[in-house]
Amino acid sequence: MNVLEHKIDVDHNAASDMIQYVTVVIGGQLFGLPISQVHDVFVPESVTRVPMSAPEVQGVLNLRGRIVTAINMRRRLHLPPLEEGQMMAVGIEYKHESYGLVIDTVGEVLTLSSSSEEPNPSNLDRRWAEISGGVHRLEGKLMVILDVDRLLGSMFTEPSVAA
């Protein structure tokens, strides 16, 4: 719920070059998603497997009458599966379709100035660099910005024939 409250604030701060991020943790690493892209946070339940799909696709699930494609971020980042505990998911929209990024936990909302943003370090694992839009230096830790367009865009193997 606090996500939504913060979401209202975002309109007031829009003028400055401050960006609000919803932070999530995947395999111990802090990631940030621009708040404008996050639609909801939910617990992924009764996920239907999709045979023959890409390994990072966990399946499809029913979120209030909409069918959401769940993407397991641990698998996407080539991390071992979560041993115990309940996974969480953030709902995002990409090209008018609903996707759920399955992550470990959802953190807080941070308002960060773009001045503390830095490009990806050149020695970052290629598979991570692919979906990272940069890094924010926070006190005591680093936050990797999840670039949703690149994350999902790269998973479309080829443009659909119908399009």
Partner: peptide, 21 residues
């Protein structure tokens, strides 16, 4: 979703009476 549309085995998906996909 577009991501799954390349799977030739499926033509679509739906929500069943019991709420599962």
């Amino acid at each position: 979703s577009t991501m799954l549309r390349n799977l030739g085995m499926f033509s679509g998906n739906t929500i069943l009476g019991d709420g599962s996909v």
